[in-house]
């Protein structure tokens, strides 16, 4: 099995070339190599799914489905591409499908602030010495999350991929399979719409 080139699970620590050797090992049937890829990418995929779906359990299900789908199709993965981009596209597609299903069943509900508060946010800036500040930050995050969830699907996915996940336009274009110009125009509208939504919620930014 290839040696890990970076610490799995650390935010922003995934080296693009580091995935390929595990992907190749996985294509030869090495399940441990796929396990490494899961460890590396599960967090990001889960968060994309969560921001798109707004539901923690659905996000977990979709993340699992996406990884299984990726494993099944790993033989078709072209090593010239970036594995994480390919995995993002699978996750986004599964999340979209789940949205359609949940909306069809009229079960899709946006997270309430209370629900969001109960979830542990690990990377947000907060002061551990001030519980009030932590609570304030959580409330603010919940409202932002609600505003994001209220965006149209096509705006929301671009915003999540660009402003939350920090992906490049090239990556987003590959994931969503749309031209770069469309990505930019959707992003501009998404930001404008989100700004207006946040102004309504907060009154002043």
């Amino acid at each position: 099995m290839p040696r890990l080139s970076n610490q799995a699970g650390e935010k922003g620590s995934i080296l693009p070339d580091g995935d390929l050797e595990f992907v190749r090992a996985c294509q030869k049937g090495d399940l441990n190599a796929f396990d490494v890829l899961v460890v590396r990418h599960q967090r990001k995929m889960f968060n994309v799914a969560y921001r798109m779906l707004g539901n923690y359990d659905d996000a977990a299900d979709v993340t699992q489905e996406a990884f299984v789908a990726a494993y099944k199709a790993i033989g078709t993965f072209k090593t010239e591409a970036k594995f994480s981009t390919w995995l993002y596209s699978i996750t986004v597609n599964h999340a979209k499908n789940r949205l359609k299903q949940t909306r069809g069943r009229k079960e899709h509900e946006r997270l309430s602030p209370a629900e969001t508060e109960n979830l542990e946010l690990e990377s947000c800036p907060r002061s551990d010495e001030n519980p009030y500040a932590i609570m304030e930050q959580k409330e603010k995050d919940a409202l932002v999350h609600q505003c994001i969830a209220s965006l149209d699907d096509e705006y929301r996915e671009v915003l999540i991929l660009r402003d939350i996940q920090g992906l490049s336009y090239e990556e987003i274009r590959g994931i969503l399979n749309i031209p770069e110009g469309t990505v930019k125009s959707r992003l501009a509208r998404a930001r404008e719409a989100l700004k207006n939504g946040l102004l309504k919620v907060f009154g002043d930014l």
Binding site: V39, Y71, E122, C124, H145, E192
Partner: peptide
């Protein structure tokens, strides 16, 4: 206002996935 919006979004914390998500994924795989 737009700059602040971008900052609010980028400051959103990452959620930790369920503790046994990795095991579930690998079991399914």
């Amino acid at each position: 206002a737009l700059e602040k919006t971008k900052k609010l979004v980028s400051d959103l914390g990452e959620l930790a996935p369920p503790p046994r998500l990795r095991q579930k994924i690998m079991a399914a795989v």
